[in-house]
Design a protein around this nucleic acid. Structure first.
Lengths: 240, 240
DNA sequence: AAGTGGTCTAGACCACGGC
DNA sequence: CCGTGGTCTAGACCACTTC
């Protein structure tokens, strides 16, 4: 019997997408039992090992949970901790409207630290984009993004302020954002930031320095953010 | 032929630990090629599928990298982002000596918030353990741990102060720590904390509230920590 | 006892990359 | 061409859980 099948997809992937479809369509709910290896093998006309592969791989993805002697079950929808999200995405995932105001947007060539974080030569031209974020009518964060001007100066003509920067990068520049390394510490509001955020001077702020990389490992954007600690708090999950 | 083998371990795990050993011993370095599936199968007298399983599983762990048509190679040592580590482990991973002083250790029954974080009834007895952390002779963090007194009051007789709390929990109580959810924000040092940490009052501090869970999902410990922002900064990685 | 997942065999062909 | 990893078969026995 030939290994190749009608649509060119490996058999174990066909089985996976069949199961995924039933979950997405609502026919299978978290906790429901999935057909056993042996049943899947019969249904899809494959060997046990192939059906196993399909289920084992779905388990790695966290879609199902397998219990020896019991069966395979649809896993509870996973909470996305530590997920890289844009401000817009974070807000909408909490059903809040995202407000944003561009305070500054220009190409500069003396932003040495930002250039270094982007792995560019110290005097490279970088696009600096400063935005005030607010929610519920209150300002709560000041975020400054830096991007390589050589690659992204066109952003100055893009509808920043209305559209998500992540979205523009992914759609217009075909960049797949992959991961971000963040450094977090606490600092006191200096006079300028205090005024912009409408808080007293020397108020404690969360400072987050973030380098965002593409899936290929290229540094795309450096973001320096100051967050009002009374309105923002970071949640992460660590694993042992 | 019987499936069972001399030491009771599955064959694919024996193959894995053989490879791991060669890496740990320095016989195999990042980038070096690992024996191919077929070679491993011959060497360990197993079928191809079993050798495959061993390598595929090592790849999931990030120990090796597999490239079709090329071979299997030792992966670059992974940086452990977002890893749950004890203070002692963190310090030793940076080759610093961990210093720690117990300021308070008692069972209390009016720590409502801590009890709630541990999913215990509000008035449960909890063990409160307050420790001053220092490094390089300087105090840099105040950490307060809360544990269920019903289960862990014996800790009062354990050599806290000398030994890692994580270690005691894992060895003496047979608890497998699994993950932790952390809430991070910034706050200003109150008079007591300022004095303990030898910093001016109202200095910005990083505040981390951490609930540590066992691998089974049971809340084991609630830790409230205040970190001198000039000495400590949190690094995490987020994924999209 | 019956059913489940976990491990394993001894082969096979395919797709890819380097020579 | 040859060696690599990727997919697959048609069985087998083991360990575990429920009945």
């Amino acid at each position: 019997m030939p290994v190749k099948n009608r649509n060119g997809l490996p058999a174990y992937q066909r089985i996976q997408s069949a199961i995924r479809k039933r979950i997405d369509a609502g026919h299978l709910h978290p906790g429901d039992s999935v057909a056993s290896e042996r049943d899947l093998a019969k249904i899809h006309q494959v060997s046990l090992m192939t059906a196993r592969h399909a289920l084992a791989s779905l388990e790695r993805e966290g879609i199902v949970e397998r219990r020896r002697g019991i069966g395979t079950f649809v896993a509870a929808p996973k909470i996305h901790f530590n997920e890289l999200m844009s401000y817009t995405e974070q807000m909408s995932s909490r059903s809040l409207t995202a407000g944003s105001k561009v305070l500054f947007a220009k190409v500069l060539d003396n932003e040495n630290e930002a250039a270094a974080r982007l792995s560019l030569p110290p005097t490279s031209s970088v696009l600096k984009l400063e935005r005030l974020r607010h929610a519920a009518g209150e300002p709560f964060a000041l975020e400054t993004c830096y991007l390589s001007a050589a690659e992204f100066s066109g952003l100055l003509d893009a509808p920043i302020g209305r559209e998500s920067l992540f979205g523009i990068l992914e759609r217009n520049y075909k960049i797949e954002l992959g991961y971000a390394d963040e450094e977090i510490d606490a600092t006191a509001a200096d006079p300028r930031i205090a005024e912009i955020l409408s808080i007293p001077r020397r108020e404690p702020l969360l400072r987050i320095r973030q380098v965002i990389y593409s899936t290929k490992g290229l540094a795309i954007m450096y973001v320096l953010g100051f967050y009002r600690s009374d309105r923002h708090n970071l949640v992460i999950r660590r694993f042992r």
